[in-house]
């Protein structure tokens, strides 16, 4: 590893910030999910960088589990989007403000 760790941390922080920004300013639920994926990727970069720096396999294992969690989250999240879309024909977060119907 020759590019030093702070560079990876900086990239990870910027990517996480962009994901958080998108999550806050976008209204489309699907795009908001994509922004969550961006933040998970930022965490993955940090995990792998630290794993290499500290010579610890735990980082890679954590990335492995993050991938699984991300896949599960997307599957359930998109299922919810599909279920809501059947009722409302819309994927805008502001319009989903009723617990019933």
């Amino acid at each position: 590893m020759t590019v030093s760790l702070p560079w990876y941390m900086g990239l990870s922080a910027v990517l996480f910030g962009l994901g958080a920004l998108g999550l806050m300013i976008r209204r489309n639920v699907l795009v908001m999910y994509m922004c969550i994926e961006l933040m998970l990727n930022a965490a993955n970069i940090a995990f792998v960088a630290f794993a290499q720096k500290l010579n610890d396999l735990g980082g890679q294992a954590a990335v492995f589990f993050v991938l699984v969690v991300a896949a599960a989250e997307v599957v359930v999240g998109l299922g919810i989007v599909v279920a809501i879309f059947r009722r409302r024909a819309d994927t805008t977060a502001d319009d989903i403000h009723l617990m019933k119907g």
Partner: peptide, 19 residues
């Protein structure tokens, strides 16, 4: 991250070795 080395955490760990 740029100004403080302690922000980068431990310099060694006791987990499963990588290589």
């Amino acid at each position: 991250g740029a100004g403080a080395h302690y922000a980068l955490g431990a310099s060694s760990s006791t987990g499963v070795a990588n290589h």
